[in-house]
Computed example of a mutant assay.
Amino acid sequence: MRKTSRVGVTGHLNLTPPTVELVRADLRQLLRPPLVGVTCLARGADTVFAEVVLAVGGALEVVLPCEGYGDTMVRPEHRPRFEALLEAAATVRVMPFRRPGRQAYEAANRHILHTCDLLIAVWDGQRTGHRGGTGAFVAEARAAGLPVDVRWPAGAAREST
């Protein structure tokens, strides 16, 4: 019997609709049970990852950066998917913060970093200099010795901000 892999995710929030489908197809080819997918359940890459984890028969662990995260930080158009995935999660961990902020997000990222066997980064490779961005998390994971698998399918793009 194969050991259960713990796979975390980081990635862009602003994937174009065609990119969502490219990433979904890519992750369906990559992810195989037994696995636990660990995600903060942000819109974009995290949500696609969570849906694929469940679709392939994996277990979902959600790491929320703070209390009330869903009520304060989830956009109304994303709320139905967020709530459905939260309900489907085998485990929900809430970081010990009352409000969202840099420390809360960094704590959630550290949890993923220190509890996973692999980090999947749905990332175009562009560094923004943003301390909490995907590029920064990838660099932190690599510095800690966590294997990182960068996924950016041909034709993928981000929505302009």
Rank of each mutant, 00 (worst) to 15 (best):
P17K: 03
A50K: 07
M73V: 00
E21A: 13
G129K: 12
R131E: 15
V94L: 12
P96Q: 06
D117C: 10
L13I: 05
N14C: 06
F82I: 01
A90H: 10
S5T: 12
G8H: 09
A139R: 13
G11M: 04
E140W: 09
A139S: 10
A88P: 04
T115M: 13
R81M: 07
G44W: 07
R142A: 15
L31K: 08
G135E: 10
R6M: 03
Q103L: 08
L118W: 08
L113S: 14
Y69F: 12
P80M: 06
C66W: 00
F137I: 10
G145A: 11
V92F: 01
P17Y: 05
R151P: 12
V63T: 00
A90F: 02
R98E: 15
T16K: 09
Q126T: 15
L15V: 14
P18K: 04
R93L: 05
A42W: 00
R142I: 10
I120Q: 08
F97T: 00
E83W: 04
L119R: 04
L146S: 09
V62K: 07
H111I: 04
A55V: 05
D71M: 02
E106M: 08
E87G: 01
V36M: 13
F97L: 02
F49K: 06
D117Y: 08
R151Y: 13
A42P: 03
G68L: 01
A84K: 11
A157F: 06
G70A: 03
L60N: 05
P147C: 14
V7D: 12
V36S: 04
G125Y: 06
T161E: 15
M95W: 04
L31Q: 12
M73S: 14
H130V: 14
P100D: 10
A136C: 11
K3I: 08
G68I: 01
V148Q: 07
W152Y: 02
D46C: 09
L41Y: 13
H111L: 10
A108M: 11
G101D: 02
G133H: 06
E61W: 10
P65G: 03
R142W: 06
G37I: 06
L22C: 09
A89Q: 09
A143M: 01
R79C: 08
A50H: 12
P147Y: 14
E21S: 11
E106G: 02
R98D: 15
W123P: 03
P33I: 11
F97A: 00
C116G: 13
L13F: 01
S160R: 13
L146R: 09
F137K: 09
G44V: 03
L15G: 11
A88R: 12
P76C: 03
G125M: 02
T10G: 07
P153N: 05
A154D: 13
F49W: 04
E140Y: 02
V94R: 11
M73T: 03
T134V: 00
C66P: 00
T128C: 06
Y105N: 14
A156S: 11
H111T: 02
D117V: 09
H111P: 02
M73C: 10
Y69N: 13
L31G: 06
V23K: 02
M1G: 15
D26M: 08
P100L: 00
T115F: 02
L86W: 03
T128G: 08
